[in-house]
Nucleic acid binder design. Sequence first.
DNA 1: TATCTATATTGTAATATTGCAATATAAATA
DNA 2: TATTTATATTGCAATATTACAATATAGATA
Lengths: 110, 110
Amino acid sequence: MGITKSEHFTDEQNELATLAKAIGHPARIAIIEHLIKVNSCVCGDIVNELPLAQPTVSQHLKELKNAGLIKGNFEGNAICYCLNEEGFNKIKGFFQHINTYLENKKNQCC
Amino acid sequence: MGITKSEHFTDEQNELATLAKAIGHPARIAIIEHLIKVNSCVCGDIVNELPLAQPTVSQHLKELKNAGLIKGNFEGNAICYCLNEEGFNKIKGFFQHINTYLENKKNQCC
DNA sequence: TATCTATATTGTAATATTGCAATATAAATA
DNA sequence: TATTTATATTGCAATATTACAATATAGATA
């Protein structure tokens, strides 16, 4: 049906899924990597960095913003984008949990 | 169009996106959390743990397996599932990169 | 071998996502 | 104010995802 049964899962599970889903597209990975690479707020050159049309990039930026992974400030007629620490911190705990588990697990059959 | 232009992105970007996308569903988060919680290979009780029909769970398990995030071994007529370290290690680096960046970034406008 | 149990596959309907052309908006500047 | 520049929104077509009933498969056991 294409419709996720969110109501049957916990808020935390839904939130983590939303964050991971937002990261789950190569264009959005590329945007995140670019924001890190230039190490400053980026005013609009993201469209030129990506092999996609402007409306498509705008849509991807919107999804990252909605998920809480990037922030955008108006700066004149342009917009400055940068990573939103809050969003990434929420995922951080999840992966730390997994890594700690994987480092310590023993007696596994697979 | 619903079709991702993977060919325009690097292999690494596509791979990270595939992994994140696989994690990006609450049912699959729940599966991962369950595998950690029981701290052993799980033989089939995953269907009972989730509020979804058996074929749907089977489909989610397949997606996690295809992405390299879990492994499954036949154990009699059941199957043992557990986390696949390899898949999670691939994402680990990405998030470490982001976290290191976020901890050190300064002079940001947003 | 027949049956049971556990899991996978197939087929299908509903919904979501991706991408872009066309267009709208909004601030800056001529 | 008219124009330019940067970004967002709308509308739409193509494809992907989600969910499940029905069915298939495959090993275990009676």
